[in-house]
Nucleic acid binder design. Structure first.
Length: 269
DNA sequence: AATAGGTACAACCGCACTTAA
DNA sequence: TTTAAGTGCGGTTGTACCTAT
């Protein structure tokens, strides 16, 4: 069978294909080709771009490294918190988590999680387990092996999706102050610096050491009160947790992510 | 200075899904 | 309906770099 998009039969891959790290020259070739012609059928890209690589390898290189608009460098506190929160809800659905972090790739996020965030979350949860034994739902395996929730997201984010969260009674057992996710993020410009610089949250709603968002999302603290509770109309919803009118709005997260564009001077596709 | 261990990042592998013939 | 190729995704591995001993 031929390639769907280029309508040409694809010859079997050449036996001599390069592997391993990409050279600057290869990057340049691939980048030039795709910017001029688009990728079209990935399997034909290497040939047309003059590369001795698998189409799959080209695709990965483009998506994870060469694609315009990628954000390089350290993750911000906001991104970190968002990854933790999303991972708690979605599990290892990196592609879905990536949709809410413009400029980051699933590979970036996956690597960051595996190398750093996972340990951080485990540490936080370990502390929580020590200090508050009532948080039994915060099991380490949730973040460790992170199987996707039974009703986890399937398909694209444009399709209405339902979160399967913890039972609502937990909401009222927590000693932590209640905090809207978007509300918390809206104050990020303030509290993040406070957290980092002073070690004490300026906002009493914010819990130090990055645990506030985890707890808020993990124990159903979000959206049951607060100034923005009535403004949400997103398809995202904690089905078993909130009244009909109270939704968890990822569109708002997207707007917040928009700040990244501005602050980093990066244009995203 | 040498080296072992840890970390971060890039790339590959294999599976599942989609789609066209 | 079947089959084969393309594509996407998550898991894993390889490697360069850093740090502690």
């Amino acid at each position: 069978m031929g390639c769907k998009s280029c309508n040409k039969p694809i010859t079997k891959p050449k036996p001599k294909l390069r592997r391993g790290l990409w050279s600057p020259d290869e990057d340049q070739r691939l980048s030039n080709y795709i910017l001029q012609h688009g990728h079209g059928c990935w399997s034909s890209v290497p040939t047309k771009a003059g590369l001795q690589r698998h189409g799959k390898s080209c695709r990965l290189r483009w998506i994870n490294y060469l694609r315009p608009g990628l954000k390089r460098g350290m993750f911000t506190i906001e991104e970190e918190e968002m990854i933790i929160a999303l991972h708690r809800m979605l599990g290892n659905k990196w592609s879905q988590i990536t949709q809410h972090l413009p400029g980051r790739t699933d590979n970036d996020i996956k690597n960051y999680w595996n190398s750093y965030l996972k340990k951080k979350v485990m540490k936080i949860e370990g502390l929580e387990a020590q200090t508050n034994t009532s948080y039994t739902n915060s099991s380490p395996e949730t973040s460790e092996s992170a199987p996707a929730p039974k009703e986890s997201f399937q398909g694209s984010s444009s399709v209405p999706q339902v979160f399967d969260c913890h039972p609502p009674e937990q909401t009222h057992q927590s000693s932590f102050p209640k905090l809207l996710f978007t509300e918390w993020l809206s104050s990020d410009h303030v509290h993040c610096q406070n957290l980092v610089n002073s070690g004490e949250p300026a906002d009493p709603r914010v819990i130090p050491d990055g645990s506030n968002l985890n707890d808020a999302l993990g124990y159903g603290l979000l959206l049951d009160e607060g100034p923005f509770a009535s403004e949400f109309s997103s398809p995202f919803k904690f089905e078993n947790q909130f009244p009909e009118s109270e939704f968890f709005d990822f569109d708002s997260m997207g707007e917040i992510c928009g700040d990244f564009n501005m602050t980093n001077g990066v244009n995203y596709l």
